[in-house]
């Protein structure tokens, strides 16, 4: 019986997004995506580029939280202006947590509610989502899989582009849109269905497809090889502990549930 937490299982699942990406900038935004990218670089994909989340490229992922004696190993510079250059050139794969996601993979980080001029909830703004989504590969992280995130209709303010045909007029280049994985607290989804429809690719231990469907505002497909999301190995857990010495990952999910046995 594993002692791994659900957060740790999600870190391992997130790390898979960066497998076989080649040399590009891996940007995991917030704790679990960042640990996923870091784990990818420490294990199957050392060719990835990463920053210290400020302005420098680092040779190895920087642990989260207070650094103590740890000295970051810089190998280059990547301030925000150069990050944009990198985005536009397509050599980046980001994983962020949007406020809403719809069946077309469109995302919202700006404003929730029907009236854009007077939103029910003003979030952050579109940030870099329009550029990220139309320029380079993207994956998403959802710590609270439910119909408020996976909305029934279109997201309220389309910040990141997706595969909705009506949004793409003649002459608009869709070639670089490349949505990969969605890692949630219930499952891993991808865009592998017909016309990039969202499919469940693996279910976390103890979760049923029906449960995921009930928590999603639109119909889901099942991947032909639908499987159970793998548990972290002891080697992966050891690396995660090293990357997150202050256990910030334990604060991401409510009550920090175990990977196995939390579902009723």
């Amino acid at each position: 019986m594993t002692t791994a937490t659900l957060a740790e299982l999600m870190i391992v699942a997130a790390s898979e997004a960066w497998r076989d990406n080649g040399e590009l900038l891996a940007s995991g935004i917030t704790t679990i995506p960042r640990l996923g990218a870091s784990l990818a670089k420490m294990t199957h994909s050392p060719e990835l580029l990463m920053t210290n989340s400020e302005a420098y490229l680092v040779a190895e992922p920087v642990p989260l939280g207070p650094l103590g004696d740890y000295v970051p190993q810089y190998e280059g510079y990547l301030g925000f202006e150069r990050v944009f250059d990198c985005v536009w050139g397509g050599k980046r794969h980001a994983m962020i947590g949007p406020t809403q996601i719809d069946r077309w993979g469109q995302t919202n980080l700006s404003a929730v509610g029907p009236d854009y001029k007077k939103p029910k909830s003003a979030v952050l703004g579109v940030r870099g989502l329009p550029g990220n989504s139309i320029c380079h590969p993207n994956s998403f992280f959802v710590p609270n899989h439910g119909p408020r995130v996976f909305v029934a209709g279109e997201v309220d303010m389309v910040s990141g582009v997706g595969y909705k045909p009506e949004r793409w007029l003649p002459g608009m280049k869709q070639d670089y849109v490349d949505l990969r994985l969605i890692v949630t607290d219930l499952c891993v989804l991808d865009f592998g269905g017909p016309d990039h429809a969202i499919r469940v690719r693996s279910l976390h231990p103890g979760v049923s497809f029906e449960q995921v469907q009930a928590a999603t505002g639109f119909p889901l497909l099942q991947a032909d090889d639908l499987s159970e999301t793998p548990l972290p190995t002891e080697e992966q857990l050891a690396i995660i502990r090293k990357l997150d010495p202050h256990n910030l990952r334990s604060a991401v999910l409510k009550n920090n549930p175990p990977a196995v046995g939390a579902r009723g």
Binding site: V126, L129, P130, I134, V158, S159, W168, Q174
Partner: peptide, 11 residues
């Protein structure tokens, strides 16, 4: 290219 197919353009 940035902004195409989003509500940045539509709004």
């Amino acid at each position: 290219r940035v902004g195409l197919a989003t509500d940045v353009l539509a709004k």
